[in-house]
Write a protein that binds this DNA or RNA. Structure first.
Lengths: 183, 183, 183, 183
DNA sequence: TATGAATGAGTGTTCATTCAT
DNA sequence: TATGAATGAACACTCATTCAT
């Protein structure tokens, strides 16, 4: 029961924080949830605890999706597609909270959970010669995560659908936007 | 004289807002500029006015860079390269303020200033058959701006250089990250 | 049954209030008693009622001890000794609650219960020529009760024992701390 | 100018804290001083700082009075008289704040400033055979400080004057309340 | 003109108290 | 009856903004 309510509050909090940004107040969140401020504090002893719980949940969801994707069992391009879908999906569900608005002391942990799988995959791609050699792996990773982050914002704003965004990101990142000159 | 001081304050404000995020206080900004809070208020009657002025300056700079780029005088791929450099450069200089932290009532204007040139260019690309036909122009635009925004964040964090980012974004967006199968 | 539980709660409350001071919360008291907050409210409808009940109990105990002391049946010095022991004992048992932390509207009643026996005794002493005539009875009473109060605090802090304090207070108050010049 | 205002606020704070007890709010103090809450915070960055400043001032005053008293230059009984007057005077002026309501982390320091001169004086008295040998010095000290504290409360309540209390405390503590049997 | 001082409105947090089970 | 849950009112503290010098 308790967990159920807490989960509901988290969901509302995610929505409000996404809408109003990090400066959304506990007042805003409690009001959006239709409870008194003190009730919110029953479940999360302070603002930080709430943000932390939110980030925890988002990271857990993300980790699960990535694990389900079995990235190392498929070729790199397919793995990129799956990773993209996992990240866009999780970020959209949690309103981008994995990516933005991390409580400062979790930034490291969050960044790691986010960056690690990306790093591994791109290292493999580099080793296997999948990616253009003139682009350093580090740069590739930054641009890819930047692309993800920027696109998720659009998804959150309702300008792109999750599926639409995932597919387009994957396609453009891997093959580019230009029409291929036929050989 | 007056304008000169105001410009200096704006510069400081841009730096502080980029460092501390949107929750940087007028106190922070005034302190960083080495003036009293009340002095800051002499030049910008309130917080909103300051943010607006900042955004105005950034948009003006961006518009100038884009005009200089003569986008319609070159082929679409080259225009994308120039536009990318213009946007990354301007955003980096103004600490991303064109893109994030827009005062709510300027969002529309800012988005327009940002989106309009992108829109025109991509429409032309579509008309000329430069882009993959299976990707709707609207989607292309969103993903491109998302890529820009996400990458600028990395530049601001010092993880990518301006030139490095511009080149990589252009290359990846146009041609993809995959190594081309030789014909 | 009910009274028994209430008495137990009062005892716990006295201990907690003595330890944490007047700012001890109902939370603290309920937790120390091992019951839910709401249960505490079953027995004492609000914080004030609890404090009042506590003071009532302490005053009753004090009145009983004083009655047992048969003050008017013994010479004034012996009566002072007994009164002192009664007051220090009662105050120590109830953690000084008779003396401090009285609910404002009971202050008068409490002060009276405290002051009345002292007043009677000192009036008798004055009438009988027991006390130095240059010290007004009123002053004597104030200094004596002040001495009691201040000493009880030390007893509660564990710096003096009840017996030790009672004996020393009586001796010093009556005969002074100076060594007597032998006649 | 600044210091002057701060001193005025301290004075008001001392009065309010003495009246309302330790739970007096910053609201109460600011209102009593006729300023806005935020103004109070300009001078004392938080509640603790205010209490600390108050205690500092009181301890300084007390130390000065005690130094002025040249306790070691006079016989013990006269020294007790001077010490008593110094302590009652300082405590009355600062509303007993040296004695009660010490911020927890200053308790040690405050107790020391208070206890040290008392301890020295009573040790000397014991060494010189001034005090009754059957009363341990430690007990003497506790009872004396208790007497002081209890009497100061009466002074603060307006039931005793400073001079009246000082004289009575000294007389009773040294020679007792009983009329001396003539030799 | 530049600034120190003052303040109203809001935020996070706690606590006494009430309600539904 | 006993309790977990919910809440309104208060408090410490911050910040954008105004005023007097």
């Amino acid at each position: 029961m308790r967990d159920h309510v807490a989960a509901g509050l988290l969901e509302v909090a995610a929505r409000v924080l996404a809408e109003r940004g990090d400066q959304a107040s506990m007042i805003d969140i409690a009001a959006a949830a239709g409870v008194a401020r003190a009730t919110l504090y029953r479940y999360f002893p302070n603002r930080d605890a709430l943000l932390r719980a939110l980030t925890d949940a988002a990271l857990a969801e993300l980790a699960e999706r990535i694990a389900d994707a079995r990235l190392d069992a498929v070729p790199v391009p397919e793995a990129v597609a799956r990773l993209t879908r996992a990240m866009v999906g999780a970020a959209a569900k949690y309103r981008g909270l994995v990516i933005f608005n991390k409580p400062p002391d979790m930034a490291r942990e969050a960044d790691h959970a986010l960056t690690a799988p990306v790093g591994e995959l791109f290292e493999r791609g580099a080793a296997e010669g999948t990616f253009r050699p003139e682009l350093p792996t580090r740069t590739l990773i930054e641009v890819y995560t930047g692309l993800l982050e920027g696109s998720v914002v659009r998804v959150l704003r309702g300008r792109l659908g999750v599926e639409e965004a995932s597919a387009a990101i994957t396609k453009i990142f891997l093959e580019g936007a230009l029409v291929r000159p036929e050989t």
